[in-house]
Amino acid sequence: MTRKPDGVRIARLGSGLLTGATWLLALAVIFPFLWMLIQAIQPDSLRFNYPPIVDASRFTTAGFEQAGRDGEILTWLRNSGVVALTSTAISLLLGAGAAYAIARFRSRAVTASTMLILSSQMVPPVVLMVPLFTIINALGLFDTLVAVVLGNVAFTLPVVTWMLSASFRTVPPELEEAAMVDGCGWLGVLRRITFPVALPGVAAAAAFSFNWAWQEFLFARIVVSRSENWVGGIGLSSFFGMFDTPWDVVMAATVIFTVPPVVFFLIAQRRFVDSVGGAVKG
């Protein structure tokens, strides 16, 4: 019986350790979501036991039924979806032009603008709440979803611009030059060449912008007061009472509001990867 070389055994051992570490990391990431789901369907009599007890035979959907009973959660889902999708689209549209200028042009004006965008990330978002509220109020947009969208764009646009500029730098300039030789202008190059080739980076920027807008709470709470304009974060906070908190309802609603960002990311990832694959084959 031949003995396998030490290098092969070490390689297999390293691969096994890496696989085990990956599974442990995956379990650490998934466990909070799994425990949140368990608490959503766990009866009250078992919720606060220590050590924890999980009895699948006593699981109940009462929390989900109560969360969706009055229909308000559907309103919050709709508002959150409108705000997140609109904020993401505006951030990508505005950030693409600025990112392309940063990635391709070299001048004092571009350098100054780049440093200004970078310095804006050194200011804590909470510091911007008062001036943003003043602007929103002066424009007559208080207590509207438009105000929430504008606030989200103000927070995400600098980061989206930086992410897109890094992706645009990976696009070979020769592709753009060939398109210009064929008569394509700057906007056409950005739309037909740069954007499709940099789609993985665009997907990452879109995921960041969507997740920020979906989970943002503080600014939305400041500029929105009527319950029909509440987004998910405000709606979830309304379940917490001074003397009692229905934890099954809170956990059930949280599970529901966790699903859309995951679905958005999976759909965007698949569409963008398929597009890149098609472009490479072409």
Rank of each mutant, 00 (worst) to 15 (best):
I10E: 10
L13R: 13
G14C: 08
A21K: 02
L27S: 12
A28F: 11
I30A: 15
F31S: 09
L34R: 01
M36I: 09
L37N: 06
S45R: 05
F48A: 04
V54I: 14
A56N: 13
A56Y: 15
F59Q: 04
A62C: 04
G63I: 07
A67V: 15
A67C: 11
G68L: 08
G68M: 12
R69C: 00
D70S: 10
D70H: 12
L74Y: 11
L74H: 00
L77Q: 09
G81M: 06
V83A: 07
S87V: 11
A89Q: 12
L92G: 12
L93I: 13
Y100E: 08
F105L: 03
F105W: 06
S113F: 07
T114C: 01
I117G: 13
L118M: 10
S120M: 03
P125L: 06
L128V: 13
F133H: 06
F133D: 03
I136V: 14
A138I: 01
D143S: 08
L150S: 10
F155Y: 05
F155Q: 01
F155C: 01
S165D: 08
A166W: 01
P172N: 10
A179P: 01
G185R: 01
V189M: 01
L190S: 11
R192T: 13
A198Y: 00
G201L: 01
A205V: 12
A207T: 15
F208P: 05
S209V: 11
R221T: 15
R221D: 15
W230M: 08
G232Q: 12
I234T: 15
G235K: 02
F240P: 01
F243G: 02
D248N: 15
A253N: 04
V255H: 09
I256K: 04
V259M: 09
P261D: 00
F265L: 09
L266W: 02
A268E: 03
R271A: 12
R271Q: 08
D274A: 13
V280T: 13
G282W: 07
